[in-house]
């Protein structure tokens, strides 16, 4: 048995009536590279936070920014945009 929805459970037009529900699922599991921040070099300009296309970078209490690896797709835009060169893309290891 499976608890996956059958055709009878599908909403009309496959409409999602609770928007934002992607936050309940981990969507970054197919990433091949992850961003690694060097806090020594980071100037806390927030550009990585602003430019992340998936909203996967968040501000932390200590004033720095970190990627939520449950959602980060590893696109590398943060590393490219960082004016201080503080973010490096590192290959994901073998699972």
């Amino acid at each position: 048995m499976t608890d996956k929805p059958t055709w009878k459970d599908m909403h009309i037009g496959n409409i999602i009536t609770d928007p934002g529900n992607a936050s309940f699922r981990r969507t970054g599991d197919w990433r091949t590279e992850k961003p690694v921040l060097d806090k020594e070099m980071c100037v806390r300009c927030a550009l990585c936070w602003i430019d992340c296309p998936d909203g996967a970078i968040r501000p932390c209490d200590d004033g720095y920014y970190e990627a939520d690896l449950h959602y980060c797709k590893g696109c590398g835009i943060c590393a490219r945009i960082c004016p201080a060169g503080a973010i490096l893309m590192e290959e994901e290891g073998e699972q």
Binding site: K8, D9, G13, T17
Partner: peptide, 28 residues
């Protein structure tokens, strides 16, 4: 229309249907 696009009642129309749900969507 029961599910109109409305900023006060946001919902998602036209989302992705990966292989584990596409067949069910088409049968429905």
């Amino acid at each position: 229309y029961p599910y109109p696009l409305d900023p006060d009642r946001p919902m998602t129309h036209g989302a992705l249907g990966p292989p584990d749900i596409y067949s069910e969507a088409k049968l429905a």
